[in-house]
Write a protein that binds this DNA or RNA. Structure first.
Lengths: 249, 249
DNA sequence: CTGAGAAAATAACGCATGTGAAATAACAAT
DNA sequence: ATTGTTATTTCACATGCGTTATTTTCTCAG
């Protein structure tokens, strides 16, 4: 059932049938959340790890005066902070952007998983490292890129991430975000997101309509956005398949 | 010798003499780097984990057209990405901002440490979680805060982090950064950093001179910067000292 | 003490992006 | 179809911050 996660992890290393089964077993407790509802709130005490199975969510933080920053987007297969339960309380909230189906992985299940399945442990570490690399890239995006580069960069990133889990269809992918949400993520006003979107459309770089994004020429968009996918670390060629860890399947 | 790291980790959980010794042993291989030299570069293949013992460093990323973003600051006791060697190549560079003394922790040593010293493993996980929480907060900082809030927020963060490892002296701390470096970190021009710094000085919120920062009234600066230290997770009161893991000392 | 290089400060001007408000357009539920 | 609701688009105007360049102040080696 957590096939998106498995597919994502297998971009990094092949898992055995047993490994995959262990992941299934860890993700038995399912929950659903309505669009726009909070999955967990700042100040809550985290007791388990959330794995998004279906739908989109986001991390966000709200300043005292109402300003809101979306800190990251979660798509199917994404884990919300492995080992987060070590912390006493959440420093941010997570909200469902669409209806969300997720699995709550209890602390004990995760600990057992990493102890008994070293390949899974390594793959989860890889996933964690990629997540923080994405967060770093957002720092670069917000700090240095212009509005048009910034938005183009986000579109490239989301497209490539979705492609990795098989959720793209040719040159298009789902993008269930409003312009206000894009604005909150990019640190821009919704008015300026609208202007920027039109500029991207006029340049023929993107089509964004009906909750779907189409990128007719990904290379062109990458170039215009200074997007370099190296930070997603999708380039391994089996490097991490240890010869002495046979993959029984 | 890695006493800053130990002091930092002990903000989270008490370590036994044995735990501390294991950390010492893992950090035997020492190196020094000159001011402004690169410690590791984008594209390099990481083979070990760097632990800053002395001096300041930063992660940064350079765009093709020369724009540079400083992504994070490293102070003594900071680890540069636990388990980074799982990745094939670095997606960013790390540079020494002052002369730097560090320890290279080999992969095997780290693996052994986490296997044989569960308290240390937990503490390192906590440290990792705090690091990414800091990265998230930078996203909020760059996305939502005005120049003056942004810079004030950075000053609060660095002061609190340094206080945690005993590197503050009353209401002041070292801050060996130039205005250009502050600009590259805050996504602002050096000219505007200068203007903003003057505004902070005029308001009596900071004194910044001779590579030292003084914050006469931390509460006031926190308020002006919308700084909430919760994301540094320094609030545990022994919550993670399991009763069944006696701390021999 | 002196000079050279780096860092900080100042100045003038331009533009990317914000703000607030109003007008359309799309969507969802009856 | 009709309506209420939410999302998008457009407009007019304001401003925070960038850019380029010059000047002043530090720092420290000799």
């Amino acid at each position: 059932m957590p096939h998106h996660l498995i597919r994502k992890l297998e971009q990094f290393t092949k898992l055995s049938r047993d490994d995959r089964q262990a992941l299934e077993n860890a993700a038995v407790k399912r929950r659903t959340f309505a669009e726009h509802s909070d999955i967990i709130q700042e100040g809550d005490s985290p007791s388990h790890v959330n794995l998004i199975l279906e739908g989109w969510a986001c991390r966000y933080k709200q300043l005292d005066d109402g300003r809101r920053q979306i800190i990251s987007f979660f798509v199917p297969g994404d884990l919300c902070d492995t080992h987060v339960y070590l912390l006493r309380e959440m420093d941010h909230s997570i909200a469902a952007l669409t209806p969300v189906r997720l699995a709550e992985i209890p602390r004990a299940a995760l600990d057992q998983l990493t102890e008994e399945h070293p390949r899974v442990m390594k793959a989860l570490w890889w996933d964690t490292l990629v997540s923080v690399a994405i967060q770093r890239e957002w720092t670069v995006n917000l700090g240095q890129r212009t509005a048009i580069e910034r938005l183009g960069h986000l579109f490239c990133e989301l497209f490539v991430r979705l492609r990795g889990i098989g959720l793209t269809d040719g040159d298009s992918c789902p993008l269930p975000l409003t312009q206000v949400e894009l604005a909150d993520a990019m640190g821009l006003s919704n008015v300026h997101i609208n202007r920027t979107l039109q500029e991207l459309r006029r340049a023929g770089l993107v089509v964004f309509k009906g909750k779907r994004l189409t990128i007719p020429d990904l290379a062109a968009l990458q170039k215009a956005s200074l997007f370099n996918p190296n930070y997603l670390h999708l380039d391994h060629e089996g490097r991490h398949l240890d010869a002495n860890e046979p993959v029984a399947d």
